[in-house]
């Protein structure tokens, strides 16, 4: 029905690229979320003045284009003689970039927990840590989840930029095939479909959780 030079092994090549995209995204989101949790709790806890250095650094990560961050980080690690593989550099840069957004999500979600609810918890004798664990985190999670899903899906797409450090992820694999087969429309459609297939479960998972939580209200 459709004439294409794309072979099964070309498709496997794309899927290998998709694997790279998933790997970079996984490490970036995991690392970025852990750091974002740490920084977000810190931001919600300490005064704006004390947090100023942190705010500044995170603002840099949020405002400088990711491509520039990737290229500069790669150049700096080479100058410093760290000899880091591009994969590690990419994951670290993307994780920091993710953490900058995640910090804001976490801080906003924690701030959305009403003061009186936290006071009620502390009044019952719960320690700060118990309040965080049993009251603040579960309540904040419901607020943060939609933004966090959005961030994760965004990072998956932004991760395409690591091709500038020579990593062959999904978009780069697509480019290579386009150059070789000269079928840009079809190949980009396949690449787009693969991106969609990777994003869909994450988006659905978020939708499911939200639905379950909403039933309780």
């Amino acid at each position: 029905m459709f004439d294409t030079a794309l072979t099964l092994s070309d498709l496997m090549f794309l899927i290998k690229g998709a694997g790279m995209t998933l790997a970079v995204t996984f490490f970036a989101v995991t690392g970025g979320t852990l750091l974002g949790l740490l920084f977000g709790v810190l931001r919600a806890q300490i005064s704006v003045w004390a947090a100023l250095p942190l705010i500044f650094v995170l603002d840099v990560f949020r405002s400088v284009p990711l491509l520039i961050q990737l290229v500069l980080a790669n150049a700096f690690q080479a100058i410093a003689g760290l000899n880091m593989p591009p994969f590690a550099t990419s994951c670290i840069v993307l994780a920091l970039y993710t953490s900058a957004y995640c910090t804001e999500i976490v801080r906003g979600a924690i701030d959305a927990v009403p003061t009186v609810t936290r006071r009620a918890a502390r009044s019952l004798g719960l320690s700060w840590g118990q309040d965080m664990r049993y009251i603040v985190f579960p309540m904040a999670l419901r607020v943060a989840l939609p933004s966090w899903i959005g961030l994760t899906l965004g990072v998956m797409k932004d991760s395409a930029l690591v091709l500038w450090l020579g990593l062959i992820e999904l978009l780069r694999s697509g480019q290579i095939l386009v150059t070789r087969l000269q079928e840009p429309m079809f190949i980009l459609m396949v690449v787009g479909a693969i991106y969609f297939l990777m994003s869909f479960p994450i988006a659905r998972l978020g939708g499911q959780l939200e639905k379950r939580w909403r039933e309780n209200d």
Binding site: V116, L124, L126, W213, N216
Partner: peptide
């Protein structure tokens, strides 16, 4: 945390743990 065990408090604003 120890002292608060013996002082209950109920606030004006609703303060149930909604989850």
């Amino acid at each position: 945390n120890l002292l608060r065990r013996k002082i209950g408090i109920v606030f004006q604003q609703f303060n149930a743990f909604p989850h």
